[in-house]
């Protein structure tokens, strides 16, 4: 079956095999070499290592802050990455005569401060786009928002413009966690860039992506990775007086770094 769901709001098409191809063939011809894609990914990774917030970010109305040395880059050695677990082999197979497009632009987020612009702007809202909607897993909707379709392991998934995934159930659509190995052409708006060990991850609402060739694959996170936000629907638990949030097989342990609450993942 050849069905392809076109999505005007996304630069991607999905085949029923779960494979993805570029939608804008003209742009693909101009830009679409895998080397270009890899180069772009490498550039994003380098940018993500930018060590510190700008002075304006961390200044807080302080004149003294300008006289202090800029903070050094964070240590990265404490994150242990298990390639077999974190990066499943999900290379898409692209027909030789189909032009592909490089990874789309990724908004770098190298630092957050407590008063960084609110969710409306920080998480993908802004000019020409509204604030994204975060759907909670298990939530049901009768009509899907604008979306593209993914067939993965003979299961149909629907991926909306805000990065939520759905599956059909009893005539409705239920919000679900995407399967590890699913591939999307474009990252959802508002992803945070998280560099752990040698790998650059893109994180949003409990879903981790890595760039792969001309697209992005859903992967499991490595233990010890630190993320800026909790997934919607994470459950709070208190163990021995320590607060955790549990989601999709991981404990999200909160701490305050640079004045901002962040979460360190450990397997449950």
């Amino acid at each position: 079956m050849k069905s392809i769901f076109k999505a005007p709001g996304k630069g991607a098409q999905f085949l029923h095999s779960g494979m993805l191809v570029g939608r804008d063939s003209k742009r693909s011809v101009l830009l679409g070499h895998s080397r270009m894609a890899i180069a772009c990914s490498a550039l994003y990774a380098v940018l993500a290592l930018t060590p510190s917030a700008t002075l304006a970010d961390r200044g807080q109305g302080s004149i003294r802050a300008a006289a202090r040395p800029a903070p050094a880059p964070p240590q990265r050695a404490s994150v242990h990455v298990e390639p077999s677990h974190a990066m499943p082999d999900v290379h898409p197979v692209v027909p030789p005569n189909v032009a592909v497009q490089p990874p789309p632009h990724v908004d770098m987020q190298v630092h957050r401060d407590w008063d960084d612009n609110d969710e409306d702007t920080q998480h993908g809202g802004g000019f020409a786009s509204g604030a994204p909607v975060r759907a909670i897993r298990g939530q049901r909707v009768h009509n899907l928002p604008h979306h593209v379709s993914i067939l993965f392991n003979n299961q149909n998934y629907f991926y909306d413009d805000d990065g939520n995934y759905y599956q059909q159930q009893d005539g409705d659509y239920m919000v679900v966690q995407p399967p590890v190995g699913a591939i999307v052409a474009a990252l959802p708006p508002g992803v945070a860039t998280v560099v752990a060990g040698p790998t650059t991850y893109y994180y949003l609402d409990g879903v981790f992506y890595v760039a792969q060739d001309n697209s992005f694959a859903v992967v499991n996170p490595p233990a010890g990775i630190v993320v800026p936000d909790l997934p919607s629907g994470a459950n709070q638990v208190v163990v021995n007086g320590n607060v955790y949030y549990q989601f999709n097989g991981f404990n999200y342990q909160p701490s305050i770094r640079d004045g901002v609450t962040v979460y360190t993942l450990t397997p449950m």
Partner: peptide
């Protein structure tokens, strides 16, 4: 409310 650690600058973890 619940207590959580205050992490020293530039120690441990990746950069979120």
């Amino acid at each position: 409310s619940a207590p959580i650690p205050l992490v020293r600058q530039n120690t441990g973890g990746n950069q979120p």
